[in-house]
């Protein structure tokens, strides 16, 4: 499930296999993982270099593509003096608060819904249509409705993000629940477990790896929705910061904001993988 070293082990190293350099002599090749990492690093360097060069020779107007130094400097200046009345830290914490409040809400609603879908026909009958209805709708489409219903305050923003997170968590939970081993369920029943105990002690732990996958997808969806959620009546937040900057054509802040979101998302991704290793060490080992 995780993109660890093991999953790459079987992939042949195409680049090395196709190179004509080895003739008889034994060449000790780097593992495919190391190769991929080196190539990734080179790709990033190349892109950065292309950006530096095009900015340096003004191939693109600095209004549209500011230099990396300028963006880096913006990072510092927004972090210290701020942009649109808030520092980078305040924008970041405002956004993080919204995403995590939404995640909490989504987990509380979607995990029980997913369990209901997974274990009972009635549950499936109730929640499946709702989830399938919500799933394909873009957040920008229901944002106006949420504002009409719940106003322009913080709850609306959190709700918009949470709705985007419901479907991935519920669907992953349901699939994890359905995948719970019948033998294990029977074993628990034969040891005297009630229906509730079976759900709590067997089905829920069985579904945990799948729930964590859903949580991961949900966080991705949450970040995508963040900018939409901060469209209306926000005074802080990364999405708000980017949009304000765009309106004034402060491109360096826009790019800086994009990088901040990317870095935070990356850190969260690593955090979830750690969490998987701690919470579901058995996953993939049976």
């Amino acid at each position: 499930m995780t993109l660890s070293a093991d999953s790459n082990r079987d992939i042949p190293d195409i680049a090395a296999a196709g190179s004509p350099r080895q003739t008889g002599a034994k060449v000790r090749r780097a593992s495919p993982v190391t190769t991929a990492r080196i190539v990734s690093a080179l790709t990033i360097l190349a892109l950065l270099l292309a950006w530096l060069v095009s900015a340096h020779f003004k191939l693109v107007s600095p209004v549209f593509l500011p230099s990396p130094q300028t963006v880096l400097w913006k990072f510092y200046s927004v972090a210290t003096t701020g942009f649109v009345d808030a520092t980078l830290w305040q924008h970041l914490t405002a956004s993080l608060f919204r995403v995590f409040a939404a995640l909490l809400f989504a987990l509380v609603v979607a995990i029980p819904a997913g369990i209901a879908i997974g274990i009972s026909a009635v549950g499936r009958g109730i929640f499946d249509p709702v989830i399938e209805f919500l799933r394909p709708i873009p957040p920008l489409a229901y944002l106006p409705l949420i504002i009409i219903w719940f106003g322009i305050g913080e709850p609306s923003k959190i709700l918009v993000i949470a709705i985007a997170m419901l479907a991935p968590i519920a669907i992953s939970t349901a699939s994890g629940v359905k995948g719970a081993s019948q033998d294990r369920i029977n074993a628990a029943r034969a040891l005297g477990a009630t229906r509730f105990q079976v759900i709590l002690h067997v089905i829920l732990p069985s579904a945990l790896p799948s729930i964590l996958t859903g949580l991961r997808i949900a966080l991705g969806a949450g970040w995508s929705t963040l900018v939409a959620a901060e469209l209306v009546a926000a005074t802080r937040g990364l999405g708000f910061m980017i949009q304000s900057a765009a309106q004034f054509l402060v491109t360096d802040v826009v790019i800086m904001g994009i990088f901040v979101i990317a870095i935070v998302a990356f850190i969260l991704e690593i955090g979830i993988r750690r969490l998987e290793r701690v919470l579901v060490p058995w996953s993939g080992k049976e």
Binding site: S181, N186, A187, R189, G192, H201, V202, L208, V280, K285
Partner: peptide, 19 residues
């Protein structure tokens, strides 16, 4: 009518709880 702890079951593929 239902399984009970007075009749414990051992399964072929152990059915242990890996968590």
């Amino acid at each position: 009518k239902a399984p009970g702890a007075d009749r414990a079951v051992v399964f072929q593929n152990d059915a242990l709880f890996p968590w």
